[in-house]
Amino acid sequence: MSRLSFRMLLLAAFMTVLTLAIGIGASFVITYLDIYDLTAEMPLAGWSELRAMLPDDPVIRARFQELFVRYSHTDIRPQDWFFIAITAAISTLLGGAVAFVFARRLSRPITAVADAAVKVAAGEQNVRIAPMVLAGEVAELVGSFNAMAASLDAYGRERSILTAGIAHEMRTPLTVLRGRLHGLIDGVIAMSDAEASTLLRHVDRLSRIVEELRTLAHAEVNALTLDRRMVDLTETAHLAAADLGPLTAEGDVTIAVAGAAPPLFCDPLRISQALTNLIYNAVKHAPPASQVLVSLEQSGAHVSIAVMDAGPGFAAEDHDRLFAPFWRANSPANAAKPGSGLGLSLALKIAQAHGGTITATNRKGTNGAIFTLWLPLHQAE
């Protein structure tokens, strides 16, 4: 039985007890009035004779009955009907008042939820129900609605940010492609292998953004397809570091891989993608002539792959936004760094699809940040 049903049952029981109490009280009042009528109309000699009838004797009992019938007026008189009507009215009013108070207390938050739901359906995302003194399921209903409205509001803001980020990231290559294609058509730019390579590079960038968005969308609805098999994570880390070698050479940054991890049942392409994104993010923030360290180890029932850089780290207030799509720390240096802004978001979604996660901390005693990919060691095939 739910708590709301139990409370309604208690209300019904209370109303029954209240009605019985009023009825019993009314019967006592009627009995008192009957006795009052008996003693008021009976002469003193009759009252003395009544008191003498205490012994248990049939003759005395018959005489007592005769006197009682003669003077007590046991038949229902008009004033008795009036008293019964007053008693019923008082019982109804008191019971109705109690029921109204309880019903009002229960219906007010439910009505507030219904009105707020209509506003949310109309597009108002900042609707919240004011705090009330509530308990039980009704309090849970109000709390759940406020949590849902807050989630919808946050989702709306994230969607706006995501849309703006998509437009920002795609605008630059599209603008370049449009300008250079117009130049080719007008004859201002000569067609050459170098020009074709430039155009192809921007097309590849657009394709990469679209593919990352598609992967992120599938991960959001738990529809990311995983081709699981036994994977050597140590080898995967070394291959990811080698693939990013040309990028690190430009900034004189080196990538070192240390430690080892046992084989894991996972999707090798997805894990490689997540690890590459973490290393690429570390390389972007690493200062010149520094090292990005990739450390693998087994920690209990998990495998951890930590990616450490020697960059500036991140502000404490930015921790909860590190994995938001297209989010960048508000600094000129970060604004100038390359990338689609989806790398960390994709890495986290891939880790979650494997039952793991990614944590981010600043390095203690030195500059830099640590992004650690955690994957459960034992997973069902």
Rank of each mutant, 00 (worst) to 15 (best):
P287N: 11
P287Q: 04
P288H: 14
A289R: 15
A289S: 10
A289Y: 06
A289M: 08
S290M: 09
Q291H: 14
V292A: 04
V292L: 08
L293F: 05
L293G: 00
S295A: 11
L296Y: 07
E297D: 11
Q298F: 04
S299V: 15
A301M: 08
V303Q: 11
S304Q: 13
S304Y: 00
I305S: 10
I305N: 01
I305Q: 01
V307M: 01
V307N: 06
M308L: 13
M308K: 12
A310C: 11
A310R: 15
A310K: 14
G311D: 03
P312Q: 11
G313I: 07
G313C: 03
F314V: 09
F314H: 14
F314P: 04
F314S: 10
A315D: 13
A315C: 07
A315G: 05
A316M: 06
A316P: 02
E317V: 12
H319V: 10
H319K: 14
H319L: 13
D320I: 11
D320A: 15
D320G: 12
D320Q: 12
R321C: 07
R321S: 09
R321K: 13
P325G: 08
P325F: 05
P325H: 10
F326I: 02
F326W: 10
F326T: 01
F326E: 00
W327H: 09
R328W: 06
R328L: 10
A329T: 06
A329W: 00
A329F: 00
A329S: 13
A329N: 06
N330I: 12
N330M: 12
S331M: 08
P332K: 09
P332R: 07
A333M: 08
N334R: 15
N334E: 14
A335Q: 14
A335N: 08
A336D: 12
A336L: 12
A336Y: 02
K337L: 15
P338T: 05
G339V: 02
G339Q: 08
G339M: 11
S340A: 12
G341E: 03
L342V: 08
L342Y: 03
G343E: 02
G343I: 04
L344E: 01
L344V: 03
S345D: 01
S345F: 03
L346D: 03
L346E: 04
A347F: 05
L348P: 10
L348V: 02
L348T: 04
K349W: 04
A351Q: 01
A353R: 15
A353E: 01
G355N: 04
G356A: 05
T357W: 13
I358T: 03
I358N: 05
I358S: 03
T359R: 07
A360L: 01
A360N: 04
N362V: 01
R363I: 06
R363L: 13
R363D: 01
K364G: 00
G365H: 07
N367A: 14
N367Q: 10
A369F: 03
I370W: 00
F371I: 00
L375M: 15
P376S: 04
L377K: 12
L377V: 10
H378N: 07
H378P: 00
Q379R: 14
Q379D: 02
A380S: 12
A380I: 11
